[in-house]
Simulated assay, not measured.
Amino acid sequence: MRDANPFVEWVVKVAQPCNLACDYCYVYEMGDRSWRRKPPVMAPGTADQLARRIAEHARRHDLPRVRVTLHGGEPLLAGLSRIEHLLAVLELELHGTAECDISVQSNATLLNPLWMDLFRRHGVSVGVSLDGGREANDRHRRARNGRGSHAAVQRGLELLRRPENKALFAGLLCTVDLDNPPLDVFESLLAHEPPAVNFLLPHATWEHPPPGHDPDRTPYANWLLTVFERWYSAPRQETGVRLFEDLVDLALGGEVRSESTGLADTDFLVVESDGTIELSDSLKVTQDGGAATGLDIFAHDFDTAARHPAVADARRGGLAALADVCRGCEVVRLCGGGLRAHRFRPGTGFANASVYCADLRVLTTRIRDRVVADADALLGSVS
Protein backbone atom coordinates (compact mmCIF):
# COMPACT_ATOMS: atom_id res chain seq x y z
CA MET A 1 0.00 0.00 0.00
CA ARG A 2 1.32 3.43 -0.88
CA ASP A 3 2.01 5.90 1.92
CA ALA A 4 -1.06 8.01 2.60
CA ASN A 5 -1.00 11.77 2.69
CA PRO A 6 -1.53 13.15 6.19
CA PHE A 7 -4.90 14.34 7.35
CA VAL A 8 -5.28 18.09 7.75
CA GLU A 9 -8.93 18.35 8.78
CA TRP A 10 -11.09 16.72 11.44
CA VAL A 11 -14.89 16.91 11.55
CA VAL A 12 -15.74 16.53 15.24
CA LYS A 13 -19.17 15.38 16.39
CA VAL A 14 -19.37 17.32 19.61
CA ALA A 15 -23.12 16.61 19.88
CA GLN A 16 -25.20 13.78 18.44
CA PRO A 17 -28.76 15.16 18.82
CA CYS A 18 -30.32 18.00 16.86
CA ASN A 19 -33.07 20.47 17.72
CA LEU A 20 -34.42 20.25 14.15
CA ALA A 21 -35.90 17.28 12.31
CA CYS A 22 -34.99 17.95 8.67
CA ASP A 23 -36.66 15.24 6.59
CA TYR A 24 -33.65 14.79 4.30
CA CYS A 25 -31.09 14.47 7.11
CA TYR A 26 -28.49 11.80 6.36
CA VAL A 27 -27.76 11.28 10.07
CA TYR A 28 -31.27 10.55 11.35
CA GLU A 29 -33.48 9.87 8.34
CA MET A 30 -31.42 7.43 6.24
CA GLY A 31 -30.17 3.89 6.85
CA ASP A 32 -27.68 4.57 9.65
CA ARG A 33 -28.70 4.25 13.30
CA SER A 34 -25.25 4.35 14.90
CA TRP A 35 -25.96 7.74 16.50
CA ARG A 36 -28.28 5.95 18.92
CA ARG A 37 -25.31 4.03 20.31
CA LYS A 38 -23.11 7.06 20.96
CA PRO A 39 -23.07 9.52 23.87
CA PRO A 40 -25.16 12.64 23.21
CA VAL A 41 -22.18 14.96 23.76
CA MET A 42 -18.40 14.60 23.72
CA ALA A 43 -16.93 14.18 27.21
CA PRO A 44 -14.00 16.39 28.31
CA GLY A 45 -11.67 13.37 28.43
CA THR A 46 -12.50 12.51 24.84
CA ALA A 47 -11.86 16.11 23.81
CA ASP A 48 -8.47 15.98 25.57
CA GLN A 49 -7.48 12.80 23.75
CA LEU A 50 -8.64 14.18 20.41
CA ALA A 51 -6.52 17.30 20.84
CA ARG A 52 -3.49 15.17 21.75
CA ARG A 53 -3.98 12.98 18.69
CA ILE A 54 -4.33 15.95 16.32
CA ALA A 55 -1.20 17.59 17.76
CA GLU A 56 0.69 14.29 17.52
CA HIS A 57 -0.29 13.97 13.84
CA ALA A 58 0.68 17.58 13.12
CA ARG A 59 4.11 17.12 14.70
CA ARG A 60 4.76 13.82 12.95
CA HIS A 61 4.01 15.31 9.54
CA ASP A 62 5.30 18.86 10.14
CA LEU A 63 1.89 20.33 9.39
CA PRO A 64 1.92 24.14 9.69
CA ARG A 65 -1.88 24.38 9.80
CA VAL A 66 -4.80 22.08 10.56
CA ARG A 67 -8.58 22.50 10.45
CA VAL A 68 -11.22 21.39 12.93
CA THR A 69 -14.94 21.61 12.16
CA LEU A 70 -17.37 21.26 15.06
CA HIS A 71 -20.38 19.32 13.85
CA GLY A 72 -23.40 17.32 14.99
CA GLY A 73 -26.37 16.90 15.08
CA GLU A 74 -26.44 20.50 16.18
CA PRO A 75 -23.02 21.22 17.73
CA LEU A 76 -24.27 24.04 19.96
CA LEU A 77 -26.29 21.47 21.91
CA ALA A 78 -22.96 20.41 23.46
CA GLY A 79 -23.16 23.57 25.56
CA LEU A 80 -20.82 26.49 26.12
CA SER A 81 -18.60 24.86 28.74
CA ARG A 82 -17.86 21.72 26.71
CA ILE A 83 -17.14 23.68 23.54
CA GLU A 84 -14.93 26.11 25.43
CA HIS A 85 -13.03 23.19 26.95
CA LEU A 86 -12.40 21.68 23.52
CA LEU A 87 -11.25 25.01 22.07
CA ALA A 88 -8.89 25.58 24.99
CA VAL A 89 -7.33 22.12 24.86
CA LEU A 90 -6.84 22.35 21.09
CA GLU A 91 -5.02 25.65 21.54
CA LEU A 92 -2.92 24.18 24.36
CA GLU A 93 -1.89 21.00 22.55
CA LEU A 94 -1.20 22.67 19.21
CA HIS A 95 0.68 25.66 20.64
CA GLY A 96 4.08 25.85 18.96
CA THR A 97 3.20 23.03 16.57
CA ALA A 98 0.52 24.18 14.12
CA GLU A 99 -2.05 26.88 13.60
CA CYS A 100 -5.60 25.61 13.95
CA ASP A 101 -8.50 26.97 11.93
CA ILE A 102 -11.68 26.13 13.84
CA SER A 103 -15.19 26.41 12.47
CA VAL A 104 -18.64 25.28 13.49
CA GLN A 105 -21.39 24.14 11.12
CA SER A 106 -24.68 25.09 12.75
CA ASN A 107 -28.34 25.62 11.99
CA ALA A 108 -27.91 28.97 13.82
CA THR A 109 -31.18 28.67 15.73
CA LEU A 110 -29.33 28.59 19.08
CA LEU A 111 -26.82 31.36 18.38
CA ASN A 112 -26.82 34.07 21.03
CA PRO A 113 -24.39 36.77 22.28
CA LEU A 114 -22.70 34.32 24.69
CA TRP A 115 -21.85 31.97 21.82
CA MET A 116 -20.57 34.83 19.69
CA ASP A 117 -18.41 36.10 22.55
CA LEU A 118 -16.84 32.63 22.87
CA PHE A 119 -16.30 32.36 19.12
CA ARG A 120 -14.69 35.82 18.93
CA ARG A 121 -12.28 34.99 21.76
CA HIS A 122 -11.17 31.79 20.04
CA GLY A 123 -11.48 32.88 16.40
CA VAL A 124 -14.13 30.29 15.51
CA SER A 125 -15.86 30.86 12.18
CA VAL A 126 -19.51 29.92 11.75
CA GLY A 127 -21.12 28.22 8.76
CA VAL A 128 -24.91 28.15 8.65
CA SER A 129 -27.25 25.68 6.97
CA LEU A 130 -30.08 27.46 5.14
CA ASP A 131 -32.08 26.34 2.11
CA GLY A 132 -33.36 29.72 0.94
CA GLY A 133 -36.24 31.99 1.95
CA ARG A 134 -38.94 31.07 4.45
CA GLU A 135 -41.00 28.83 2.17
CA ALA A 136 -37.99 27.09 0.62
CA ASN A 137 -36.20 26.53 3.92
CA ASP A 138 -39.19 25.45 5.94
CA ARG A 139 -40.30 22.83 3.44
CA HIS A 140 -37.72 20.47 4.97
CA ARG A 141 -35.91 22.22 7.81
CA ARG A 142 -38.48 22.06 10.61
CA ALA A 143 -38.48 21.47 14.34
CA ARG A 144 -39.91 18.25 15.72
CA ASN A 145 -43.21 20.00 16.43
CA GLY A 146 -43.51 20.86 12.74
CA ARG A 147 -42.69 24.54 13.16
CA GLY A 148 -40.42 26.06 10.52
CA SER A 149 -36.91 27.10 11.46
CA HIS A 150 -36.44 30.09 9.15
CA ALA A 151 -37.35 32.80 11.67
CA ALA A 152 -34.89 31.43 14.24
CA VAL A 153 -32.14 31.07 11.63
CA GLN A 154 -32.80 34.66 10.54
CA ARG A 155 -32.23 35.88 14.10
CA GLY A 156 -28.99 33.92 14.28
CA LEU A 157 -27.79 35.35 10.99
CA GLU A 158 -28.63 38.89 12.07
CA LEU A 159 -26.45 38.36 15.13
CA LEU A 160 -23.66 36.85 13.03
CA ARG A 161 -23.74 39.81 10.62
CA ARG A 162 -23.25 42.44 13.32
CA PRO A 163 -20.02 44.43 12.80
CA GLU A 164 -18.26 42.80 15.75
CA ASN A 165 -19.12 39.29 14.50
CA LYS A 166 -19.10 39.62 10.73
CA ALA A 167 -15.51 38.43 10.29
CA LEU A 168 -16.57 35.06 11.74
CA PHE A 169 -19.31 34.46 9.17
CA ALA A 170 -17.97 31.58 7.04
CA GLY A 171 -20.94 31.22 4.70
CA LEU A 172 -24.14 29.32 3.93
CA LEU A 173 -24.75 25.68 3.07
CA CYS A 174 -27.84 24.99 0.96
CA THR A 175 -29.28 21.61 -0.02
CA VAL A 176 -30.77 21.64 -3.52
CA ASP A 177 -34.53 21.11 -3.68
CA LEU A 178 -35.95 20.95 -7.20
CA ASP A 179 -39.26 22.36 -5.94
CA ASN A 180 -37.54 25.62 -4.99
CA PRO A 181 -36.90 28.04 -7.91
CA PRO A 182 -33.12 28.26 -8.18
CA LEU A 183 -32.85 32.02 -8.70
CA ASP A 184 -35.25 32.74 -5.83
CA VAL A 185 -33.11 30.54 -3.58
CA PHE A 186 -29.87 32.19 -4.65
CA GLU A 187 -31.20 35.73 -4.24
CA SER A 188 -32.54 34.91 -0.79
CA LEU A 189 -29.13 33.55 0.22
CA LEU A 190 -27.37 36.62 -1.18
CA ALA A 191 -29.61 38.84 0.95
CA HIS A 192 -27.65 37.62 3.99
CA GLU A 193 -24.36 38.84 2.43
CA PRO A 194 -22.54 35.53 2.88
CA PRO A 195 -18.84 35.45 2.00
CA ALA A 196 -19.42 32.00 0.49
CA VAL A 197 -22.26 29.66 -0.46
CA ASN A 198 -22.08 25.95 -1.10
CA PHE A 199 -24.77 23.86 -2.73
CA LEU A 200 -25.20 20.27 -1.61
CA LEU A 201 -26.92 17.61 -3.70
CA PRO A 202 -29.35 15.59 -1.57
CA HIS A 203 -27.54 12.51 -0.32
CA ALA A 204 -28.82 9.51 -2.26
CA THR A 205 -27.80 6.12 -3.66
CA TRP A 206 -28.91 3.86 -6.52
CA GLU A 207 -31.05 2.02 -3.97
CA HIS A 208 -32.64 5.28 -2.81
CA PRO A 209 -32.41 7.82 -5.68
CA PRO A 210 -32.87 11.53 -5.01
CA PRO A 211 -36.26 13.25 -5.43
CA GLY A 212 -37.04 13.92 -9.09
CA HIS A 213 -34.20 11.71 -10.32
CA ASP A 214 -34.31 11.65 -14.14
CA PRO A 215 -31.13 10.94 -16.14
CA ASP A 216 -32.83 12.02 -19.37
CA ARG A 217 -33.82 15.47 -18.11
CA THR A 218 -30.90 16.09 -15.69
CA PRO A 219 -32.96 18.30 -13.35
CA TYR A 220 -30.17 18.83 -10.81
CA ALA A 221 -27.74 20.00 -13.47
CA ASN A 222 -30.36 22.36 -14.87
CA TRP A 223 -31.09 23.80 -11.43
CA LEU A 224 -27.42 24.36 -10.65
CA LEU A 225 -26.62 25.75 -14.10
CA THR A 226 -29.33 28.37 -13.67
CA VAL A 227 -27.59 29.55 -10.51
CA PHE A 228 -24.17 29.27 -12.16
CA GLU A 229 -25.16 31.60 -14.99
CA ARG A 230 -26.52 34.16 -12.53
CA TRP A 231 -23.35 33.92 -10.39
CA TYR A 232 -20.82 33.78 -13.23
CA SER A 233 -22.37 36.57 -15.29
CA ALA A 234 -22.78 39.05 -12.44
CA PRO A 235 -20.90 42.35 -13.02
CA ARG A 236 -19.18 41.89 -9.66
CA GLN A 237 -18.64 38.86 -7.49
CA GLU A 238 -21.28 38.92 -4.77
CA THR A 239 -20.15 35.73 -3.06
CA GLY A 240 -18.04 32.65 -3.61
CA VAL A 241 -19.76 29.40 -4.59
CA ARG A 242 -17.43 26.54 -3.76
CA LEU A 243 -18.87 23.98 -6.18
CA PHE A 244 -18.62 26.38 -9.10
CA GLU A 245 -15.21 27.70 -8.10
CA ASP A 246 -13.83 24.17 -7.81
CA LEU A 247 -15.14 23.23 -11.26
CA VAL A 248 -13.76 26.45 -12.78
CA ASP A 249 -10.33 25.74 -11.25
CA LEU A 250 -10.38 22.16 -12.56
CA ALA A 251 -11.53 23.27 -16.01
CA LEU A 252 -8.52 25.60 -16.18
CA GLY A 253 -6.07 22.84 -15.22
CA GLY A 254 -5.93 23.24 -11.45
CA GLU A 255 -6.17 20.58 -8.77
CA VAL A 256 -8.85 20.65 -6.11
CA ARG A 257 -8.97 18.56 -2.95
CA SER A 258 -12.66 17.86 -2.47
CA GLU A 259 -14.99 14.97 -1.72
CA SER A 260 -17.30 15.75 -4.62
CA THR A 261 -15.10 17.08 -7.44
CA GLY A 262 -11.73 16.23 -8.94
CA LEU A 263 -9.48 13.22 -8.51
CA ALA A 264 -7.31 14.20 -5.54
CA ASP A 265 -7.27 12.21 -2.31
CA THR A 266 -9.43 13.55 0.50
CA ASP A 267 -7.65 14.75 3.61
CA PHE A 268 -10.14 14.62 6.49
CA LEU A 269 -11.58 12.26 9.08
CA VAL A 270 -14.67 12.31 11.28
CA VAL A 271 -14.36 11.79 15.04
CA GLU A 272 -17.61 10.90 16.78
CA SER A 273 -18.71 11.95 20.28
CA ASP A 274 -17.34 8.72 21.78
CA GLY A 275 -13.96 9.11 20.08
CA THR A 276 -14.58 6.57 17.33
CA ILE A 277 -12.95 7.38 14.01
CA GLU A 278 -15.26 7.37 11.03
CA LEU A 279 -15.32 8.08 7.32
CA SER A 280 -17.31 10.86 5.69
CA ASP A 281 -20.76 11.32 7.17
CA SER A 282 -22.30 11.08 3.72
CA LEU A 283 -21.60 7.32 3.77
CA LYS A 284 -24.30 6.96 6.41
CA VAL A 285 -26.84 7.03 3.57
CA THR A 286 -25.58 3.66 2.32
CA GLN A 287 -26.32 1.37 5.26
CA ASP A 288 -26.22 1.17 9.05
CA GLY A 289 -22.61 1.68 10.10
CA GLY A 290 -21.68 2.76 6.57
CA ALA A 291 -19.11 5.25 7.87
CA ALA A 292 -17.64 3.08 10.64
CA THR A 293 -13.99 1.96 10.71
CA GLY A 294 -13.75 0.09 14.02
CA LEU A 295 -11.02 2.50 15.15
CA ASP A 296 -10.99 5.02 18.00
CA ILE A 297 -8.69 7.79 19.19
CA PHE A 298 -7.89 6.05 22.47
CA ALA A 299 -6.42 2.93 20.87
CA HIS A 300 -5.29 4.25 17.47
CA ASP A 301 -3.38 7.26 16.19
CA PHE A 302 -4.27 8.91 12.89
CA ASP A 303 -1.41 7.28 10.99
CA THR A 304 -2.86 3.91 11.94
CA ALA A 305 -6.21 5.16 10.68
CA ALA A 306 -4.66 6.24 7.38
CA ARG A 307 -3.34 2.70 6.82
CA HIS A 308 -6.66 1.04 7.60
CA PRO A 309 -8.03 -0.51 4.37
CA ALA A 310 -11.49 1.05 4.73
CA VAL A 311 -10.01 4.51 5.29
CA ALA A 312 -7.45 4.15 2.50
CA ASP A 313 -10.16 3.04 0.05
CA ALA A 314 -12.57 5.81 1.00
CA ARG A 315 -10.08 8.68 0.73
CA ARG A 316 -8.22 7.46 -2.34
CA GLY A 317 -8.51 9.66 -5.42
CA GLY A 318 -7.43 8.95 -8.98
CA LEU A 319 -8.98 6.87 -11.72
CA ALA A 320 -8.15 3.59 -10.01
CA ALA A 321 -10.76 4.35 -7.34
CA LEU A 322 -13.57 4.61 -9.90
CA ALA A 323 -15.80 2.22 -11.79
CA ASP A 324 -14.78 1.18 -15.30
CA VAL A 325 -17.59 3.25 -16.79
CA CYS A 326 -16.09 6.40 -15.25
CA ARG A 327 -12.46 5.95 -16.25
CA GLY A 328 -12.92 6.75 -19.92
CA CYS A 329 -15.36 9.62 -19.40
CA GLU A 330 -14.26 12.97 -20.81
CA VAL A 331 -15.28 14.88 -17.68
CA VAL A 332 -14.01 12.48 -15.02
CA ARG A 333 -11.15 14.85 -14.11
CA LEU A 334 -13.80 17.43 -13.22
CA CYS A 335 -16.51 15.43 -11.47
CA GLY A 336 -14.12 12.83 -10.01
CA GLY A 337 -16.92 10.28 -10.20
CA GLY A 338 -19.00 12.34 -7.80
CA LEU A 339 -19.36 11.81 -4.08
CA ARG A 340 -18.42 8.26 -3.06
CA ALA A 341 -21.69 7.70 -1.19
CA HIS A 342 -23.69 8.55 -4.30
CA ARG A 343 -22.07 5.64 -6.17
CA PHE A 344 -23.40 3.01 -3.77
CA ARG A 345 -25.58 0.16 -4.99
CA PRO A 346 -26.33 -3.01 -2.99
CA GLY A 347 -24.42 -5.94 -4.49
CA THR A 348 -21.77 -3.87 -6.24
CA GLY A 349 -20.89 -1.46 -3.45
CA PHE A 350 -19.14 1.66 -4.76
CA ALA A 351 -18.05 0.20 -8.14
CA ASN A 352 -20.64 2.26 -9.98
CA ALA A 353 -21.11 5.64 -11.55
CA SER A 354 -22.80 8.22 -9.34
CA VAL A 355 -26.58 8.20 -9.14
CA TYR A 356 -26.12 11.81 -10.30
CA CYS A 357 -23.88 10.78 -13.22
CA ALA A 358 -26.04 12.29 -15.96
CA ASP A 359 -26.45 15.53 -14.03
CA LEU A 360 -22.73 15.75 -13.29
CA ARG A 361 -21.84 15.19 -16.93
CA VAL A 362 -24.09 18.04 -18.10
CA LEU A 363 -23.06 20.35 -15.25
CA THR A 364 -19.31 19.88 -15.66
CA THR A 365 -19.40 19.96 -19.48
CA ARG A 366 -21.35 23.22 -19.61
CA ILE A 367 -19.18 24.94 -17.02
CA ARG A 368 -15.97 23.68 -18.63
CA ASP A 369 -16.99 24.82 -22.10
CA ARG A 370 -18.12 28.23 -20.88
CA VAL A 371 -14.99 28.90 -18.84
CA VAL A 372 -12.51 27.59 -21.41
CA ALA A 373 -14.13 29.63 -24.19
CA ASP A 374 -13.97 32.78 -22.06
CA ALA A 375 -10.34 32.12 -21.14
CA ASP A 376 -9.40 31.58 -24.80
CA ALA A 377 -11.19 34.78 -25.81
CA LEU A 378 -9.43 36.73 -23.07
CA LEU A 379 -6.02 35.37 -24.01
CA GLY A 380 -6.71 36.06 -27.69
CA SER A 381 -7.60 39.67 -26.95
CA VAL A 382 -4.27 40.37 -25.26
CA SER A 383 -2.00 38.45 -27.63
Rank of each mutant, 00 (worst) to 15 (best):
M1H: 14
D3A: 15
D3F: 13
A4V: 01
F7H: 07
P17N: 07
N19C: 04
D23G: 03
Y24D: 09
E29C: 11
M30Y: 13
P39N: 15
M42L: 01
M42Q: 02
P44W: 06
A47H: 03
L50D: 06
A51F: 06
E56G: 09
A58Q: 13
R60M: 10
L63W: 12
R67D: 09
E74V: 03
L76I: 03
L77F: 12
L80N: 08
S81M: 00
R82C: 00
E93D: 10
G96L: 02
A98L: 14
A98S: 15
C100D: 10
C100P: 00
S103R: 06
T109P: 03
L111K: 10
L114Q: 14
L114Y: 11
W115T: 07
M116D: 03
M116L: 15
D117E: 15
L118K: 08
L118F: 02
H122V: 04
H122S: 00
V126W: 05
S129M: 11
S129W: 03
G133P: 04
N137Q: 15
D138M: 06
R144V: 03
N145F: 09
N145T: 08
G146F: 08
H150N: 11
V153I: 11
V153C: 01
L159Q: 06
L159I: 05
P163S: 12
K166S: 12
L168S: 15
F169Y: 10
L173H: 05
T175L: 12
N180G: 05
D184K: 14
A191G: 01
H192N: 15
E193N: 14
P195M: 06
V197F: 01
F199Y: 03
H203I: 12
P209F: 02
H213D: 12
H213A: 15
D216C: 13
D216T: 08
T218C: 14
Y220K: 10
A221W: 12
L224Y: 09
W231K: 00
E238N: 07
G240K: 09
L247H: 01
L252E: 12
S258T: 02
E259T: 07
T261P: 02
L263Q: 05
D265Q: 14
D265E: 14
T266I: 08
E272P: 04
S273N: 11
I277G: 03
I277E: 01
I277K: 12
S280Y: 07
L283F: 00
K284T: 14
V285S: 11
V285L: 06
G289F: 02
G294L: 07
D303Y: 06
R307I: 08
D313H: 14
D313V: 13
A314N: 13
A320R: 15
A321Y: 06
L322E: 02
G328T: 07
C329Q: 14
C335T: 12
A341V: 00
H342Q: 08
R343S: 12
R343W: 08
F344N: 00
G347Q: 10
T348C: 09
Y356F: 14
R361Q: 10
R366Y: 05
R366H: 09
V371P: 11
D376M: 13
L379R: 09
